[in-house]
Structure formats: structure tokens, C-alpha cells
Amino acid sequence: MSKGQPFIGIVQGDACGIGPELLPKLLQGLEENEKNRVLVISDRRVLEAGCVVSGLEISCKALHERAAIDPHCGEIQLLDVPCLDPAGIVPGTVSADAGRAVLETFGLAIDLAKAGTVDGICFMPFNKAAMHLAGIGVEDELTWAKARLGVTSRASEFNVIDGMWNARVTSHVPLKDVAGRLTIELIVEAIVLADQTLKRAGYANPRIAVAALNPHAGDGGAIGKEEIDTIAPAVEKAALQEIEVHGPFPSDTLYLKVRDGQYDCALSMYHDQGQIAIKLLGFDQGVSVLGGLPVPITTPAHGTAFDIVGTNTANVRAARNAFRMVVAMAQGRAHRHA
């Protein structure tokens, strides 16, 4: 089901972070056939500020309205969204203005995807605090994108490193509430979403390993009963839907199985169970995928890195991997080196 080079929208990210300086690095490193199929959605002045920091010049065709977008124009296109003058912000700080610019450019990208103009979106790092100051009104960009796209079914963030995928059943939940949130239905939903998302990324038959909740996977019920009462039944139920899923596995062996290639995706029960492992296995190269949406959306897993903004030391590798991932997902083929 491989298609030609998809048309990808690249969103500027929080202008107080390293997004603007990553943009030119990312664009310069693209192949010619990729450059022809890229639409940067940014305030021109933000991109220019990034070019100054990175010492790069990017030649692109600036557009001032959606109607001018030509998916086959033969060079990088910039949809210039006049939303933020970088002279008015302080790099490395949380800014409501920068947050508003993020919502405006990201929202535009989502609308373009909804209209079928772009086939996928890759965004440079956002800052959650800035988006909250700007009035995002929901927990995070995933929830926001979901609402804008009219999605009501489960959506979830996936982390990907070197062909290892990770998804979570619960995410930003206090630890004491995690066990109470887990139900058979919720875990089955998460398994099904993982299966669908990896299939979209080109895995014909994704192999999913499900984490236990308790130490030693509960040790036969001696250290917690959730494995017996909830997780194992969910795994069985999902397996009936012809999904290749196994578990629950204790945390300390789960990620070794994925690392060693026995499984493609780990499904963790709570935030830190997955995040600790994911960061150990190659934090700065990681990609986040917003799964469960009708359009592929990816971003580098790292944040805005306020401490190094403007120093031209930001590593573009994760952004490049995020771009490659969204291309692969838009084409429906596996990208194993995210």
C-alpha cells in the first residue's frame, strides 16, 4: 500500500524553545523529493529567527493564504501565519503569546489535514504551560487535536525508539489512582489502539507485550490481584480479536523483550513504567506519535529545552526521526528507525 511521497505539514513549535532553530536544520537535511512535499506552517519571522540561530539559509516559497498551497510546487512552501513577532518574546521562558501561536499554527495544520490538503503533521516541541496560559482548556495537545478532528474514540500517545514502540493504558494520573482506573475494557481498548496504530505504521502483524501492574507481576496474587482479575482477562479478550498480544509481564523484563526484538510494542499500565524505560533506551532520538487520530501526527519526544535555546546545540536527530515517521505512516509502511 506504499504511495508516493506524502505532503507533510511541519508546525513551528513553541517559539521560546528550540523549535525555531530545529526547523532550518530539519529542512536543510531533507532530500529533494521530500522538500518538494513539505509545507512549513509558521510565522515567517519565527523561521527567520531560527535561521539566524542555526546559521542556515532556507530557500522557500512564502504563501499568505491557504488557497495558494500547491502540493506539487517543487520547493519548500511556507504558509506564513502572522501570529507572533519573535522580538516580543524572551527565549527560554514560558509565554502565553508563544502558546497562542502554537495553537494557531497547529490548529491550521489540523484543519489542512482534515481538508485532505496535507497527509500528515510533524510539529516541533510545544510547551504545555504556555499552551495552558494561552487557554488550550484541555489536558494536552492530543486531547485538543482529538476534539478539533471530531474524534471521540480512544487516542493515545506512543513513544517510538529504534523500532520499539510504547503505549500507556493510563498516563498523567497520580500513582495512587492508577490501580483503580484499570478495567478490562480500558486495557482492551488500549491493546486494540496499539494494534491499529502499528498496523498503520506498516507492521502487518504487530506483536504487543502487556505490562503487569505489581512487582513480579503480582507473584501469583501474593503481591496484588490486578494481574489475575483485570490484566490477564483483557489480554485474553484482545487475543480473541486476532491480535498478537501476550502478558502480563513484570516491568523489569517487559522492555528487555521489546529491546531484544521479541515484541514490537510494550503497553505499560502507568506513566513512569513506560517513561523510565523509554528514556533509558535512547531519549534524545525518540519520537512521539499521536495514535488514534485519522491523520498521522508526530513530534520529537524531547521538550522545548529552554536551557539551551539560542545556543545552536539542539540536536535535530529526533525531529528528523519524527519527520521520517510521519512520512512512513502517511505511506503506510514501517519505519523501524525512529
Partner: peptide
């Protein structure tokens, strides 16, 4: 935050990490 406590940069400044629960520390 447990997911940054065990990064090489953080560990270089610490002699021991105290984890709150089994699976926070052992897998690492």
C-alpha cells in the same frame, strides 16, 4: 521525576538513587 532520575546526566551527580517503589527502580 523518576523518568529523568536515571539518565546518565543525573546519575553522574548522585551516589545512590532512592526509589519509592519496586518497579520504579529495579528495571533500570
Amino acid at each position: 521525576p523518576a523518568d529523568t532520575a536515571f539518565t546518565a546526566r543525573q546519575l553522574a551527580d548522585l551516589d545512590v538513587v532512592v526509589a519509592m517503589y519496586h518497579d520504579q527502580g529495579l528495571p533500570v
